[in-house]
Amino acid sequence: MKIIFGFLATILIVSLAPFSYASDPSPLQDFCVAVSDSASAVFVNGKFCKNPNMVVADDFFLPGLNKPGNTSNAVGSRVTPVNVNQLPGLNTLGISAVRIDYAPYGLNPPHTHPRATEILVVLEGTLYVGFVTSNPANPAMKNKLFTKYLNPGDVFVFPEGLIHFQFNVGKTNAVAFAGLSSQNPGVITIANAVFGSDPPINPVVLTKAFQVEKNVIDYLQAQFWSNIG
Rank of each mutant, 00 (worst) to 15 (best):
H111E: 07
S96W: 02
A209E: 00
G94H: 08
V129F: 10
A176T: 09
V35Y: 03
Y128M: 10
S36V: 08
Q29I: 09
N151E: 14
V84W: 00
P152Q: 09
N73E: 06
P139I: 01
F165P: 04
M1Y: 13
A174E: 11
V42Q: 11
V205A: 03
A140D: 09
L8Q: 11
P88W: 09
F19K: 10
T133M: 12
L8Y: 12
N108E: 08
L107R: 04
A17C: 09
V169Y: 01
V55C: 10
L206I: 09
N91I: 11
E160H: 08
I3Q: 15
V205W: 00
D37I: 03
P152D: 09
P63V: 11
V155D: 03
F156G: 08
G130F: 05
P68W: 02
D30W: 12
P52Y: 05
N51M: 07
N85C: 01
P52M: 05
F43G: 00
N138H: 06
P25Y: 09
A9V: 13
D37H: 01
D30S: 15
K2Y: 13
V194Q: 07
K214I: 14
K142R: 11
N53F: 12
S182C: 06
L220W: 01
N66W: 12
I4W: 12
G186S: 09
D198V: 15
P18T: 11
K67S: 12
I190E: 04
S197K: 10
R78Q: 07
E160I: 12
N108C: 06
G89M: 13
E160F: 03
P114G: 05
Q211V: 11
A22K: 05
V75E: 11
N108H: 04
A103T: 07
T10L: 15
V205G: 01
T112C: 11
I100L: 13
G106E: 02
D37Y: 04
F177K: 01
A178G: 14
P27F: 03
P110M: 07
P68M: 02
G196Y: 08
L62R: 14
P63A: 15
N151A: 11
I100R: 07
V55M: 09
V129Y: 10
V175M: 06
V175W: 02
D59Q: 04
N91K: 07
N45T: 10
Y102H: 15
V56I: 13
P110W: 06
K47F: 15
F224M: 11
L28H: 14
A97L: 12
F19W: 08
A222P: 01
S26P: 10
G153C: 08
A39D: 15
K208P: 01
K142I: 09
S23C: 05
D24L: 05
L220K: 00
P27R: 13
C32L: 11
I11Q: 11
L8C: 15
L12C: 12
F7E: 07
P18C: 06
N202V: 06
P25N: 10
